[in-house]
């Protein structure tokens, strides 16, 4: 599958809906808890996240990680309030889209890669980085492609305007299966 040409989309429905991805990392007394894939929780000094590079990318739904180009990307640095707000510049036709959010806590990022217009050269996260994640395949509408757990699904619905996805560093007790599933939904994981 190839990514849809962005310019076509921008030109075709400039006034149409946009996609917003709001990532709010919460901390208590300067400490932020993150779930790991093995369902353990690790606590990170919140100050260590501030100023780290982040990359938000929006793809056609069901894209192949590492192989399909994004429709839009945005680089930035994690602000003091730990809230990463991303809104697409272009508008999107109704359909499924997948968003990736990575905070490069440990991976060095070349500042040139973060320049507007720089060629998209994806850098996979390494241990200690943060990544958006969701297990909730209930967000896959009938007939739509599934999505990989390392991204989140965003559905732009005809007539419903902008689509917004909220992400947070969710956690749950490891012996609570329902709570754990919720914690693994639209969350920000710590990459082991």
């Amino acid at each position: 599958m190839r990514a849809l040409p962005l310019l076509l989309m921008l030109g075709a429905c400039d006034a149409g809906p946009h996609i917003h991805v709001i990532t709010e990392l919460s901390a208590s007394e300067g400490q932020a808890d993150f779930l790991l894939p093995n369902a353990t929780v690790e606590t990170v000094d919140a100050a260590s996240l501030v100023g780290k590079p982040y990359l938000v990318s929006v793809f056609e739904g069901g894209f192949s990680q590492g192989n399909d180009d994004p429709l839009e990307i945005a680089w930035g640095l994690v602000p003091d309030d730990l809230v990463i707000s991303f809104s697409t510049e272009g508008s999107f036709e109704p359909g499924p889209y997948d968003a990736s959010v990575i905070v490069y806590v440990n991976t060095p990022v070349d500042p040139a890669d973060m320049e507007p217009g720089a060629e998209f050269d994806p850098v996979p996260p390494v241990g200690g980085d943060l990544s958006a994640f969701s297990l909730d395949d209930g967000e896959v509408l009938e007939g739509d492609p599934t999505f990989e757990a390392g991204v989140v699904r965003i559905n732009v619905i005809d007539g419903e305007g902008d689509a917004t996805k909220h992400l947070a560093n969710r956690t749950a007790a490891p012996d609570d299966s329902e709570g754990l599933f919720a914690a693994f939904t639209n969350t920000i994981l710590l990459v082991p």
Binding site: V126, L135, E148, A149, P192
Partner: peptide
């Protein structure tokens, strides 16, 4: 599952 994470096709999508 730390390296072979079941929800991501029993691998991690990370380099090492």
């Amino acid at each position: 599952s730390t390296c072979h994470f079941a929800p991501t096709k029993f691998q991690s999508n990370t380099p090492f």
